[in-house]
């Protein structure tokens, strides 16, 4: 067991290391160096390029640059944003909170909603409820998040604020501020939920359907348990296990949704920061958000893997 955990943690370290390496070489992939990307489509002369190169250390040997980049990351230094003229770490630090709030709330609601719909649908397979809810889920899944976001904000009009996280006119103090943020978060989180809940529902549904004809359910019924108890105590816990892994495996999709939803609603999180970094392009900033977003998704997945060990008695025993 301990060896298994150590193996998983080793895998996580290797995964994050791969993200770090990818983050470095990705932005140096094209012939020349990042200054080519940064100055694309602008009038610059040789001297300006040389200055830019020296400023960012691109004139140093690649090994030295890589060493400096990794050393910086270990100290929490991800360079300086070209556009904001502030350190990338500081900018990311400011934006993590809103993203965690938005993604966390939406995922929680989407998982609850998806699992509930999936269980109900599978238990009454091919009923009107099952067919309608599967259809609606597929429809939500087919929609680009940003499009749904724009539609929602057009349909609701002035009912909800269409951008940002709080009004500057809101009085200080915990409750007024919290209410203001919640008011701003309604549309972004609704959009995110609508786009991601389908996967949870469909996975839960098919994984419960797999269990439906299992012998232990017949036994449970033969014992005289009510239908509801058979479902809650026997079928659902078993079907939940594969679902849990998939929920975490799909966390990357939620991050993807967050990038466009934050862009549409100007929600001041990491997604909007990524979008802002595209405009320059602000390569140090983009590199920072890439490493942080990809790295945290990988860490989340390893955590899920470990959680799975705790949850599944079959794996725990072996």
């Amino acid at each position: 067991m301990l060896r298994h955990v150590a193996g998983k943690l080793g895998g996580a370290v290797a995964g994050v290391a791969a993200v770090v390496v990818l983050g470095f070489f990705l932005f140096r992939m094209i012939p020349g160096d990042p200054t080519v990307t940064m100055t694309r489509g602008r009038q610059v002369d040789e001297a300006q390029i040389a200055e830019l190169r020296a400023l960012h250390g691109y004139d140093r040997p690649i090994v030295e640059q890589f060493g400096k980049y990794v050393g910086g990351l270990l100290r929490g230094d991800m360079g300086t944003s070209l556009f904001y003229r502030r350190t990338v770490a500081e900018l990311i630090g400011e934006r993590v909170g809103p993203t965690l709030l938005l993604v966390g709330t939406s995922t929680l609601i989407a998982v609850t909603l998806g699992l509930w719909l999936g269980i109900r649908g599978a238990w009454r397979r091919d009923s009107l409820f099952d067919r309608t809810s599967t259809g609606v889920a597929l429809l939500g899944w087919a929609m680009p998040a940003f499009w749904l976001g724009m539609l929602l904000s057009m349909v609701t009009g002035d009912l909800f604020p269409s951008g940002g996280m709080r009004f500057s006119s809101t009085p200080p103090g915990f409750w007024p501020q919290a209410l203001d943020v919640a008011h701003h978060m309604v549309l972004p989180s609704l959009t995110l939920i609508a786009v991601v809940y389908a996967q949870y529902q469909l996975v839960m549904r098919s994984s419960l359907l797999e269990e439906m004809n299992a012998d232990y359910l017949t036994t449970a019924r033969a014992k005289g348990l009510r239908d509801d108890q058979v479902r809650r105590r026997h079928a659902v816990p078993n079907a939940l296990l594969p679902t849990v892994t998939l929920v975490f495996l799909h966390i990357g999709l939620v991050v993807t949704g967050a990038i466009t939803v934050e862009t549409v609603y100007s929600w001041p999180g990491l997604g909007l920061l990524t979008y802002e970094a595209l405009a320059g392009p602000d390569l140090p900033l983009l590199q920072g958000t890439f490493v942080v977003l990809a790295g945290s998704v990988i860490v989340m997945n390893v955590l899920a893997d470990l959680l799975y060990q705790v949850l599944d008695p079959r794996v725990r025993a072996s």
Binding site: V19, G252, L283, F290, V297
Partner: peptide, 24 residues
């Protein structure tokens, strides 16, 4: 398979954004 699992977990849009920023 290690590389495959790595790409499976990696948020693909984030990588796609980085790729299409650096390429023409």
């Amino acid at each position: 398979m290690w590389v495959t699992n790595f790409f499976l977990v990696l948020p693909s849009l984030v990588l796609a954004i980085a790729l299409s920023t650096v390429l023409p």
